Simulated scan of single mutants.
Amino acid sequence: MSTEPTWLKSSYSDTEGGECIEVAARPHVVHVRDSKRPLGPQLTVPAASWAAFVVYASGH
C-alpha cells in the first residue's frame, strides 16, 4: 500500500503550465501545493476546513 498521496490538478488549469494548485485528499486532511514546485512547501489543512473553503469559494 502506497503512502504517497494522489495529487489532483484543477480542471480549470490550462495545459501550458499556468498558475495552478494541486490537492491531495486524505481521510482527515487535505494537502495543497504549487503544481510548478511539486517538491516545494505544502499546506496541510483539516478536511472539514477545506470543505468549508470550497463551499465559500464557489459562492454557495
Rank of each mutant, 00 (worst) to 15 (best):
V55H: 12
E22G: 14
A57P: 11
C20E: 06
A52I: 09
S49T: 08
F53G: 10
L39H: 12
I21E: 02
P46C: 05
G17S: 14
H28Q: 15
C20F: 01
V23L: 03
A52L: 14
S10N: 06
S35A: 13
S35V: 01
C20A: 07
R33A: 08
P38Q: 07
W7T: 03
L8C: 04
G17H: 11
M1A: 05
L39Y: 11
S49E: 13
P38L: 05
P38F: 03
A48P: 09
S58R: 13
W50F: 13
C20K: 01
A24W: 00
K9F: 02
R26G: 15
S58T: 08
K36P: 07
W50D: 15
S2E: 05
P5T: 02
K9E: 07
S10Y: 00
D14P: 09
V55Y: 10
R37I: 01
D34M: 05
A57M: 14
I21V: 15
T44M: 09
V45S: 04
A47V: 14
W50R: 14
S2N: 03
L43I: 03
A57W: 06
T3Q: 05
T6L: 02
G18A: 09
S13P: 02
H60T: 12
L43K: 02
Q42W: 05
F53M: 10
Q42R: 14
F53V: 05
T3M: 07
P38G: 08
T44G: 12
A24R: 00
S10T: 00
T3W: 00
W50S: 15
E4N: 03
P38M: 09
T6C: 00
S58I: 04
L39P: 06
Y12T: 08
G40C: 10
